[in-house]
C-alpha cells in the first residue's frame, strides 16, 4: 500500500490551520475556549506517553471534540543508536488507545547519541548512505507504530554537505526510499535559506509536492548574542510575511492540507494565538482559492 493509501485508510485527515496543544492552555481548551475556532490540534505524544495526572484526562476530552495530529520529537530518526523499542511500544500503545491520528511524524535529525538523549534536533549529513540508513529506520518505525510516518525538514545552523541544495536532495531521497510523507516546515526552509544564502523557492521546487502531507509554519527570533547574522528557529514569535508567502506558494499547488501554526516559546494567551491563527488562515484560504481557480481553469 502506498503511503497515501495508508493515510487514507486510517482516519479522516483534517485540513486548514490548526494549533499545537500546549500545556499552558490545555485546561482552557478542555473547557471549550477554542471550540469552533480550530480545525485540529497537534500534540507531541512524547509529552503524554507513560505520564499520568491531568494531561491525559484533558487530552482525552479534547480528542472527543477535535481531530488530533501526532508529532514527536524524540525518535532520533537519524541517530546511530538502535531505535528505542520500549519507547516505540509505549508510543504505539498511546496512539492506539488515545488517538485516531492518521499518521505520526518526527524530524529528519538525530537527538540521541550513545544512550544520551540530548532533547534537540541535530543535523544529519546529506549523503546517500545517510539517506538509506534514515529511510530504513523510518520504515521500521512506521511498521512498529502500525501507522504511516511523515518526516519533517529541520532548521540547521551547520550544513553537513557541500552545497545548500544537497539538503533538498537528501530529503527527497529519504522520502522515496522510505515511501513516507513530508511534513514540510516552510519556516525552516525560510530560516535555512536566510542563514545559508539560498533561494527558498528553488529549494521547494526540488520537493515532490505529492509527498507533502502537512505543513508547519512558525515565527522565529534572532539569536540573542553577538552572532546577529544567524536566525534561530525558536517558534517564539509571530509568523513573518516571507514565510506566509512560502505557505501560499505550496498551498496554491497542493490544495487543502493541514497547516500547523507552531508556537513553542513565548506562548501568548490563547485568544492572541487564535487571532494569529485566523490571520494565517486568511493567507491559507486565499491560496486555496487560487488553487481552486487554477483547477477550474485547467478543467
Amino acid at each position: 500500500m502506498s503511503f497515501r493509501a495508508g493515510i487514507a485508510a486510517r482516519a479522516a485527515v483534517p485540513t486548514g490551520v490548526g494549533l499545537g496543544l500546549r500545556s499552558t492552555f490545555l485546561a482552557e481548551v478542555d473547557r471549550g475556549a477554542a471550540d469552533g475556532r480550530v480545525p485540529f490540534w497537534e500534540i507531541s505524544p512524547d509529552n503524554y506517553v507513560a505520564r499520568g495526572g491531568s494531561r491525559p484526562v484533558r487530552l482525552a476530552r479534547v480528542a472527543e471534540r477535535f481531530p488530533i495530529l501526532s508529532h514527536g520529537l524524540s525518535l532520533s530518526l537519524g541517530g546511530l543508536d538502535p531505535l528505542d523499542g520500549e519507547f516505540l511500544q509505549g508510543l504505539r500503545g498511546f496512539l492506539d488507545a488515545s488517538l485516531p491520528a492518521p499518521w505520526h511524524s518526527d524530524h529528519l535529525c538525530f537527538s540521541a547519541h550513545d544512550g544520551k538523549m540530548l532533547h534537540d534536533l541535530l543535523p544529519l549529513p546529506w549523503t546517500t548512505a545517510s539517506a538509506k540508513r534514515v529511510a530504513a529506520r523510518v520504515r521500521e518505525v512506521s511498521e512498529r507504530l502500525g501507522r504511516p510516518m511523515l518526516v519533517e525538514n529541520i532548521s540547521y545552523y551547520l550544513p553537513l554537505g557541500s552545497t545548500p541544495l544537497d539538503e533538498a536532495a537528501f530529503v527527497v531521497e529519504v522520502l522515496e526510499r522510505a515511501d513516507c510523507g513530508l511534513l514540510l516546515d516552510v519556516n525552516n526552509v525560510f530560516v535555512n535559506a536566510t542563514n545559508h544564502g539560498f533561494d527558498a523557492l528553488e529549494w521547494l521546487a526540488k520537493i515532490p509536492l505529492d509527498r507533502v502531507v502537512q505543513l508547519h509554519i512558525a515565527g522565529h527570533e534572532f539569536w540573542d548574542d553577538e552572532r546577529q547574522d544567524l536566525i534561530i528557529d525558536t517558534h517564539g514569535a509571530p509568523v513573518r510575511s516571507e514565510v506566509d508567502a512560502l505557505l501560499a506558494w505550496v498551498v496554491e499547488r497542493t490544495g487543502a492540507l493541514p497547516v500547523l501554526l507552531e508556537r513553542d516559546e513565548n506562548i501568548p494567551p490563547l485568544a492572541e494565538l487564535l487571532a494569529e491563527r485566523d490571520r494565517v488562515d486568511s493567507v491559507y484560504q486565499a491560496a486555496l482559492a487560487r488553487h481552486a481557480a487554477a483547477q477550474g481553469g485547467a478543467a
Partner: peptide
C-alpha cells in the same frame, strides 16, 4: 557520515 554524527554529538557532550 557516522563519524560526522559522532563528532557532532561529542561537541555537545
Amino acid at each position: 557520515e557516522e563519524a560526522l554524527i559522532r563528532a557532532f554529538a561529542a561537541s555537545v557532550i
